[in-house]
Design a protein around this nucleic acid. Structure first.
Lengths: 342, 342
DNA sequence: ACTATGCTTCGAACCGGTTCGACGAAATGA
DNA sequence: TCATTTCGTCGAACCGGTTCGAAGCATAGT
């Protein structure tokens, strides 16, 4: 392998001069710099990452801790990863991907060994067991997902409360009086998915404030169970004219259910979901939805993380908890409710 | 940060003794080893990855070069990544994920800088521009996907020829005489997806050998275009009783198309796809399919790569090109063709 | 003429591990 | 009892970068 010493010899200068010529941290004469650059090119020199990390205590790598949950929708995970990865690349960082089911252990390993300059945690639970480890780590961390305790980390998440309100208010404004909200299954909450009730509570409050009826239920995240559940719900609440879905499986199953009931949106039923545009495209879903923007969240997390790593944030700058405002992507599945047959 | 020197001082021994006590590469008395281990525990010592990499020229990291193609199905990519990641973890390696659209540049960077001990290339094209770079790299590489030239690398892919034959023969054995094969769009071939015609050619040969009619077409990979194409195909070939799908979008669209035509599988039409079980579950697809086994391929690639990295393969051992035999997952969508109405 | 100044460059130390050769003490054998 | 081997440990060198202090040299200032 070609080292900085080889370059130095080829250029007829010392190793430190090569280092300075390449980093620009000290003035080097044009003539010498040219010789160095030529030697670098001709020898095909690339600095050894380990040696550089050792000398600078900077690895230029960001750790990405993903959790592959069985009922997590894979493309969404993929979008987070892509957002993180692309943004890291722009900022000059590589991504160390950890999918170790034992999150705390993996996190401890990569931070203690100084493999990474910072860490992004995906799929953060209300009471995430990786957080205590992260707080004792010397590197900064950015989260995607809102935990109960945000001290010491930067946090990014969709504003699920606002999303819940927005869904209800959108349909309320169109004149709907009775709605159904299908959330993700309860076990998602139990493993820390607080966003489920964050959205649901806000929706219930907004409905109450406007005097709307809102039937909120947790639905399964598997097919065909969720299809049956949707049928049952529509049977149980025949006067409901709006359907809110905070449950990807429900959204994916709904077209079939509507077809089977000879209903169509928005003529018979107005529908608003909460999922990413990517998800909508994948399943060709024709329903308007609150964009969950996984790529954007990943991007924001990395941006902030890099700022902290490079101390462009003043040392000890207050940590950030930033909620992305939900945006409703209109796919034409909402309208005024049909006239009451009675 | 706590270094090996701190441990040495705490245990009252030299740094080298600590190193040997931890690696076991030389005999160390039980008493000293116990002292060292205690010091490690109490100080919370973790070796510095950069320093170790520098000293051993081994980073214990595997590079994963993914390509995010616009019409690539994200969950499949996710499954590759998971297979690679899990297997690497088992073998004691971490994953450096590169999604740089400029694959050759990214590959050169991570190999030349010695960040990685080896590399897995996903989504390898017939004439992949990353291969020349990989061949000049000092680290070994494993591919998922079959390029034209396999020299110097280990290659893993589904046996698409056998898959094409298996699909045809399965339906032939049931008595079908006229089939339709919908492949992925031609631009997939153009960007190097040779597996499309590998499967198609084999299917055509097998059909010819058995005297079956096989209508082979390339279908779009987008909704709703592929749905229309399926309708058109079924209109054009009313006597076809079997449908073969080497096109994920087509498989996802088929349930709706069948519903619209008041057809059902296998009563009216026998259907065999080529996609992963994960894909089938995601879309609740009721069609039997050739399992494309992305997780398995990722796993095999890493296994072989690690074997090479750790030189358990004798130096210069011949490189491997291994095809995974297709397995038909029976979801009950095939049967004998309906009696000819004539 | 002599010192101050600035510009380049060099040498050496350092980052935190691993590993080789050597050395002292204890065990073994003659 | 002395030579030899074995065992356990240590010191030093090394991996390939970065960075600090200093030194050489030419130019400028007085």
């Amino acid at each position: 392998m070609v080292t900085i010493g080889d370059v130095a010899r080829a250029a007829g200068v010392s190793r430190s001069t090569v280092s300075y010529a390449l980093s620009g941290k000290r003035a080097i004469s044009d003539e010498v710099r040219a010789r160095v650059e030529r030697a670098v090119r001709e020898l095909g020199y690339t600095p050894n990452a380990g040696a550089r990390a050792l000398a600078t205590s900077q690895s230029k790598v960001i750790g990405l801790l993903a959790r592959f949950l069985p009922d997590e929708f894979a493309p969404a995970m993929m979008q987070y990863i892509q957002g993180v990865s692309d943004t890291a690349l722009e900022a000059g960082y590589d991504i160390l991907l950890c999918s170790d089911p034992n999150g705390p252990r993996a996190l401890k390993r990569i931070t203690d060994s100084r493999m990474v300059d910072g860490v992004v945690l995906l799929n953060v639970a209300e009471d995430d067991d990786r957080l205590p480890v992260l707080r004792t780590a010397p590197q900064p961390g950015a989260l995607v997902g809102l935990p109960a305790d945000c001290t010491g980390v930067d946090v990014f998440d969709l504003d699920f409360e606002e999303a819940g309100r927005a869904m209800v208010e959108h349909l309320a404004a169109l004149g709907h009086r009775e709605l159904i909200l299908v959330s993700q299954p309860e076990h998602v909450i139990e493993r820390g998915g607080a966003y489920v009730w964050r959205l649901q509570d806000a929706a219930l409050q907004a409905a109450a404030a406007r005097g709307l009826a809102l039937h909120a239920v947790f639905g399964p995240s598997t097919q065909p169970e969720i299809g049956r559940e949707l049928h049952a719900l529509l049977d149980a609440h025949p006067r409901a004219t709006g359907l809110l879905l905070n449950n990807e499986a429900a959204a994916a199953a709904l077209p079939t259910v509507l077809h089977e009931r000879h209903l169509s949106a928005p003529a018979d039923l107005s529908v608003v979901g909460r999922y990413s545009d990517e998800f909508a495209r994948t399943f060709s879903l024709p329903f308007s939805s609150i964009e969950s923007a996984p790529d954007r969240l990943g991007r924001m997390a990395v941006r902030q993380l890099v700022r902290r790593i490079e101390r462009r944030e003043p040392e000890g700058a207050p940590h950030v908890v930033r909620f992305v405002s939900p945006e409703l992507v209109d796919r034409g599945s909402t309208a005024a409710p049909p006239p009451d047959p009675n």
